[in-house]
């Protein structure tokens, strides 16, 4: 009995640590929603048909907000990445040999300024995407 008591006390020792799991939940009400927009030299063109290189120039308007980076895809193929709010490139169809109708898709990741923990740690990117239809064809 004495040994059992002593044993139970010894076994009790490691589990006897201070433990407090209290949670302080904070409701985040975003107070600052800056407008963001993407414009490019293709804006306003519903249908773009090309058989040669395409000059693409974009500008991200996010007031004083921070843009993390922008990705440019042709369908799901990443062709360009930049952390500048304005940039330009030549899209050369022969580099990736697309023929037919494709989507040129730009996705911009920007800071939300929601005030949340993730936002304060620059770990809460919001995405805005814009798409243009492009028809690549070859002259036979």
């Amino acid at each position: 009995m004495k040994i059992l008591t002593l044993l139970s006390v010894i076994l009790f020792i490691p589990s006897c640590y201070y433990n407090d799991m209290e949670v302080y939940e904070v409701d985040i009400t975003p107070s600052n929603t800056l407008p963001i927009s993407i414009t490019s030299n293709l804006t306003g063109n519903d249908s773009i048909t090309i058989n040669d290189s395409l000059f693409f120039e974009y500008n991200i308007d996010y007031d004083t907000g921070r843009v993390y980076y922008a990705n440019l895809f042709i369908d799901d193929y990443l062709i360009f990445q930049s952390d500048s709010i304005s940039n330009s490139l030549w899209i050369n169809p022969s580099d990736f040999n697309p023929i037919g109708l494709f989507e040129l898709n730009m996705v911009v990741y920007y800071k939300t300024y929601s005030g949340s923990l993730a936002d304060k740690l620059n770990a809460e990117p919001m995405a805005l995407d814009t798409t243009w239809q492009i028809d690549f064809y070859t002259l036979e």
């Binding site: 640590y17 201070y18 407090d20 409701d27």
Partner: peptide
């Protein structure tokens, strides 16, 4: 003899949480 105590602090919102703990033994 054995003694233990500690302190705990937390922040939680929809995006994640921070726990800051001290356990003194």
């Amino acid at each position: 003899g054995y003694s233990t105590t500690g302190a705990h602090a937390n922040y939680t919102d929809y995006s994640g949480y921070i726990n800051f703990d001290q356990i003194v033994t």
